[in-house]
C-alpha cells in the first residue's frame, strides 16, 4: 500500500501543475507578517491593493544602501489605531524608521477597520504559528487542489485560468488574473460603498496618530494606489473620500505625498495592480524614499 501511495504522490507531483492557490504558503505569508520581528527600517501598510501592489524588494532596487523592509498590508485592512500601532511597532527604533501608507477609501471605512484578516492571524494558537513558520516549507508540497482546477486541467490540458498569486518573502503577493477584466471589482465596490462610507471618526483618529508618529521622528510617505479610472470615479463619488483634503492634512503633518499617474499603471480586475505595474509602483516609491533619505540630515 505504501509503495502504491508513494507512486501516486509522485504521479500527482509530476503530471499536475502546482495548485493555483497554495493554502500552506498563504497561511505562512499572513502569519509571517503578523508575527514579524520589530527590526525593519521601512514598513508598508495598507489593504489588498498594497499587499498585492508594493514589493519592498523593488523599493530596495532604487536604494543604496538597501533597507530592511517589509510589506505589512492585509486584505481589507483599515487604519484603526491598533493597525497603525502594529505597523509602527515593527520599525526598528535604531533604524531609518520610514512608514509607507497606501491610502484607499476602503481603508477608512468601519468595515475596513475591523481588520478581520489581521485579527484572524493574530488569534492563531502557538502551534499554528509554529507550523506556518517552520513546517510550511515541507507542507507546501502537499497543498490541495480545487476540483475546478482539475476540471479545467482535464478539459483544456492547462490550468492557466483564474486568479494567480505568488507569495513573496517581503510580504508582497505577485499577482495577476487570466483572463483580465477591469470591471470585475467595480460592482463589489459599488455595493460596498452603499453599505459603508468613509468614517470621519476614523480619519480624525488617523490624523492625530499620524501627527504623533511624525513627531516621534518617523518619516511617513503616503499615496493612493492607482486603479482603473472607473474605479477611482466610483470611489470618489460613493465613498465620501476627499483626496485633496487627505493629501493636504497629511502634508500639513509633515508627511510626503506621492503623486502617481494612473495611466502608467495597469490593473487586472479594476482594483489590483498587475505584478509588472506593482513593481513599477514600488520603484516609484523607492525613488521617493531615496530622495527622503538624501534630504535627511
Amino acid at each position: 500500500m505504501s509503495s502504491l501511495t508513494v507512486l501516486l504522490v509522485v504521479c500527482v507531483k509530476l503530471f499536475l501543475p502546482a495548485p493555483i492557490k497554495n493554502t500552506e504558503l498563504r497561511n505562512e505569508f499572513w502569519l509571517r507578517k503578523t508575527f514579524a520581528s520589530p527590526d525593519y527600517d521601512l514598513v508598508v501598510g495598507g489593504d489588498s491593493r498594497i499587499y498585492r501592489g508594493v514589493s519592498t524588494t523593488a523599493i530596495n532596487s532604487e536604494l543604496s544602501p538597501k533597507l530592511q523592509a517589509i510589506n505589512l498590508g492585509y486584505s481589507s485592512a483599515g487604519y484603526d489605531l491598533e493597525y497603525l500601532n502594529f505597523l509602527v511597532s515593527r520599525l526598528n527604533p535604531a533604524g531609518k524608521r520610514i512608514l509607507v501608507l497606501g491610502i484607499t477609501p476602503h481603508s477608512f471605512t468601519l468595515e475596513g477597520a475591523k481588520n478581520d484578516l489581521y485579527h484572524e492571524h493574530l488569534d492563531k494558537g502557538t502551534f499554528e504559528v509554529f507550523k506556518a513558520l517552520y513546517l510550511s516549507k515541507y507542507l507546501k508540497h502537499f497543498a490541495p487542489y480545487k476540483a475546478t482546477e482539475l476540471k479545467v486541467y482535464v478539459l483544456n490540458g492547462t490550468s492557466e485560468e483564474g486568479y494567480f498569486e505568488d507569495f513573496q518573502a517581503d510580504g508582497w503577493a505577485h499577482s495577476h488574473r487570466l483572463p483580465e477584466d477591469s470591471l470585475t471589482a467595480i460592482e463589489i465596490y459599488q455595493k460596498l460603498f452603499t453599505d459603508y462610507q468613509v468614517s470621519d471618526t476614523l480619519i480624525f483618529n488617523f490624523f492625530n496618530r499620524i501627527s504623533e508618529i511624525e513627531n516621534s521622528g518617523i518619516e511617513v510617505i503616503a499615496f493612493r494606489p492607482p486603479t482603473f479610472e472607473l474605479m477611482t470615479n466610483v470611489e470618489d463619488s460613493l465613498s465620501g473620500y476627499n483626496e485633496a483634503f487627505m493629501r493636504n492634512e497629511m502634508e500639513l503633518r509633515g508627511c510626503t505625498w506621492i503623486d502617481l499617474n494612473p495611466a502608467e499603471f495597469h490593473t487586472y480586475d479594476g482594483s489590483h495592480l498587475h505584478y509588472k505595474s506593482a513593481e513599477h509602483l514600488s520603484k516609484r516609491i523607492g525613488q521617493e524614499v531615496e530622495k527622503l533619505l538624501a534630504d535627511k540630515p
Binding site: M1, L4, T5, L8, V12, T23, F142, P144
Partner: peptide
C-alpha cells in the same frame, strides 16, 4: 481495498478542503 486506501490517502493530501 488496497487501491481504495491509497486513493483515499492521495485525496486527503491533494483534494482536502479547508
Amino acid at each position: 481495498d488496497l487501491v481504495l486506501v491509497s486513493l483515499a490517502i492521495i485525496a486527503i493530501l491533494f483534494l482536502r478542503g479547508e
